[in-house]
Simulated assay, not measured.
Amino acid sequence: MISVVILGAGNVASHLYKAFSYSKKVSIKQWYNRDISRIASFKNEVAITDDVSLLAEADIYIIAVSDDAISKLSKQLPFENRLVVHTSGSASAYDIDKKNRRGVFYPLQTFSKSVEIDFSEVPICLETLMRKDYLPLKALAKCISKHTKRINSDQRAALHLAAVFVNNFTNQIYRIAHEITESQGAEFDLLKPLILETARKVQRNSPYVSQTGPAKRNDKKTIKKHLKLLEDDHHKDVYNLMTASIKNTHTL
Rank of each mutant, 00 (worst) to 15 (best):
I6A: 04
G8W: 10
A13C: 02
S27V: 14
K29F: 00
I36V: 11
S37D: 13
S37P: 02
A40D: 15
S41Q: 10
L55T: 01
A56S: 13
D59S: 02
V65P: 05
S74V: 02
K75W: 00
P78M: 03
L83K: 02
S88R: 04
A91N: 11
Y94M: 13
K98G: 12
N100S: 10
R101N: 14
L108A: 10
T110Y: 01
F111L: 02
K113L: 06
V115S: 12
V115G: 07
E116S: 15
D118S: 13
L126W: 05
L129S: 02
R131T: 13
K138C: 13
K142V: 04
Q155L: 02
Q155D: 08
L161E: 05
A162M: 03
A162E: 06
T170Q: 08
N171H: 11
Q172S: 08
A177M: 06
E182D: 15
Q184N: 13
Q184F: 12
G185E: 06
G185N: 07
P193F: 00
Q203C: 14
P207E: 14
Q211M: 01
Q211P: 05
G213H: 06
P214A: 12
A215T: 02
K221W: 01
I223R: 07
L227V: 03
N240Y: 01
N248Q: 15
T249D: 11
